[in-house]
């Protein structure tokens, strides 16, 4: 937890003290989103991810992080929507594939139908 707090503090410091580029600001917002999600604050996280996406609409990490935040909230439809966009931008990303598996595990009910032939 301490690491995330320090990360958040330093990232916010960087955003206010320096003049980061548009791309760096998008990355920073996405990192803040990930940190808040990891701290169990998905609602706050979603706001940062949305800001990040506004700045850089091709930031697949921001979509992935927001998808994870929705997953934490149990909003699986929204999570899948964002994850599909992340997949379109970077289909090979390990994080995207991993989150897809987590969402499927929670959102798909398995059933096995057996039939005997004799």
């Amino acid at each position: 937890m301490g690491d995330y707090e320090e990360g958040i503090r330093l990232t916010e410091l960087g955003l206010t003290r320096y003049q980061p580029s548009l791309n760096d600001r998008s990355v920073a917002q996405s990192n803040l989103c990930a940190a808040h999600a990891a701290r169990g604050e998905p609602v706050v996280a979603i706001e940062y991810c949305t800001e990040s996406i506004k700045l850089q609409e091709k930031n697949w990490r921001a979509y992935n992080n927001r998808a994870y935040s929705y997953y934490l909230l149990g909003q699986l439809s929204e999570a899948v929507f964002d994850l599909d966009i992340a997949t379109q931008i970077n289909s090979d990303a390990r994080q995207v594939i991993q989150l897809r598996g987590m969402i499927n595990e929670r959102g798909l009910r398995p059933r096995v139908i057996m039939e005997d032939h004799q």
Binding site: G107, L108, R109, R111, V112, M114, E115, H117
Partner: peptide, 16 residues
């Protein structure tokens, strides 16, 4: 011995 077969159908239902 007697012959028999069994089929297994694996299905997933979206629940959200």
């Amino acid at each position: 011995n007697r012959p028999a077969c069994r089929s297994f159908v694996y299905q997933l239902t979206q629940i959200y």
